[in-house]
Amino acid sequence: MTALLQVTHLARHYGALRAVEDVSFDLAPGEIRALIGPNGAGKSTLFKMLMGETRPTAGTVSFEGRRITGLRPAQICRRGVGRTFQITGTWPSMTVLENVQTACLAARRRTFSLMGYARRQEVAPARALLGIVGMAEQAERPAAVLAYGDLKRLELAIALANDPKLLLMDEPTAGMAATERADLMNTVTGIARDRGMTILFTEHDMDVVFAHAESVMVLDRGRLIAHDTPDAVRADPRVQAVYLGTGLDAAALDDA
């Protein structure tokens, strides 16, 4: 099967600091993969390079066989890549519906100088997206009054407005209660399977990772040290050393 996303020898250096170093992997269409690692491992830096927010020091990123390295985030988004963030990015002064309408208008490259006119546009698609993420009943509420878990669902609806083929989710369940985390990820994986959408997400909650990811990659100090099934990654001594707290040294295990 042809890869949807191809990452080849990707690196990002800040002087002597090698935030990401020689990372290569492919993502297949429809795959749900987690990217894990301790704080400072380079996960967010890698995501920023995939989305064009940070220019790589070396390496390439290709999407559907076309190189996207060097493109701006908006250009990458238009190619079919969506993104959610650790800190939700919504418009608090707008209603839930208006937030998603705005995303739909942007996805279709339609801009209006008068918000009164814009409010009449993309209503049906926006309501449909809110229904998909379980937010239909809150459409008329201001985003500013939403609970944190609902903000995450709203952000998901906004990310889906462009009908992405690949969705990058950076810490999608951060700050949420256990039941909210499970509900959100069940929604995400259900949407992915219904649409054939590929998901790459970072996550610190191992229960979320092992319950929802079909495969798992592990970063340590900027390097990819493991990529396998959730069970195999859980049993990997290098992963246990750097992430699950055995106290062993991953570099020493590699040299053993």
Rank of each mutant, 00 (worst) to 15 (best):
R108Y: 13
V96H: 04
T111P: 08
I87L: 10
R79T: 10
R72S: 15
R109A: 14
I68R: 08
V100A: 10
A118T: 14
T95V: 00
A106V: 02
V81K: 06
E137T: 07
V145P: 02
R83H: 15
I158K: 15
E64F: 09
G80R: 00
A159Q: 02
D150C: 04
G149Y: 07
A157K: 00
A144C: 05
L97D: 04
E122G: 12
R66E: 11
V61Q: 01
P56D: 05
M51H: 14
M51G: 13
Q101D: 07
A147V: 11
P125D: 06
A128T: 03
L167H: 06
L97I: 05
E64Y: 07
A103T: 11
N162Y: 01
R119N: 11
Q86A: 12
L50D: 08
G134A: 01
Q86C: 09
G52D: 06
Q75A: 15
A136N: 02
P125A: 03
R55F: 14
L114K: 10
S44I: 02
F85V: 09
P92G: 05
R120A: 14
R55M: 08
G149W: 04
V100T: 11
V81F: 10
I158W: 01
A143H: 08
P142T: 04
K48F: 08
M115I: 05
W91K: 01
Q101K: 14
W91H: 12
G70V: 02
T45H: 09
L50N: 11
T88W: 01
K165R: 10
T95F: 07
T54G: 10
G82H: 06
A126L: 01
E98V: 06
A124R: 11
L50P: 12
T45N: 13
L166S: 09
W91V: 11
V145N: 07
L46Y: 15
A124D: 11
E155K: 09
A107G: 14
S113C: 08
C77A: 15
K152D: 03
S62C: 09
D150K: 07
I158D: 05
V81Y: 04
L97R: 05
R119V: 09
S113K: 06
T57A: 02
K165W: 00
Q138L: 03
T102R: 01
P125R: 05
M115W: 15
E64V: 05
R55T: 14
Q101G: 12
I158Q: 07
F85T: 12
G134Y: 02
A124Q: 09
R119A: 12
S44A: 08
R83S: 13
S44V: 04
S93M: 03
I68M: 04
A128V: 00
A74V: 07
V133R: 00
L146T: 08
P125W: 02
L156E: 05
L71N: 08
K152A: 07
G70I: 01
V133T: 02
Q75E: 15
L71M: 13
T95Y: 09
R78Y: 12
L156V: 06
R153N: 08
S62W: 02
E140K: 02
A107C: 06
V61T: 12
L167C: 06
Q138K: 12
A128L: 04
R119G: 15
W91P: 00
A147R: 15
G65D: 01
A103H: 10
G116V: 08
R153L: 09
K152Q: 06
T102W: 03
Q101W: 11
T54Q: 13
C104W: 02
V133H: 06
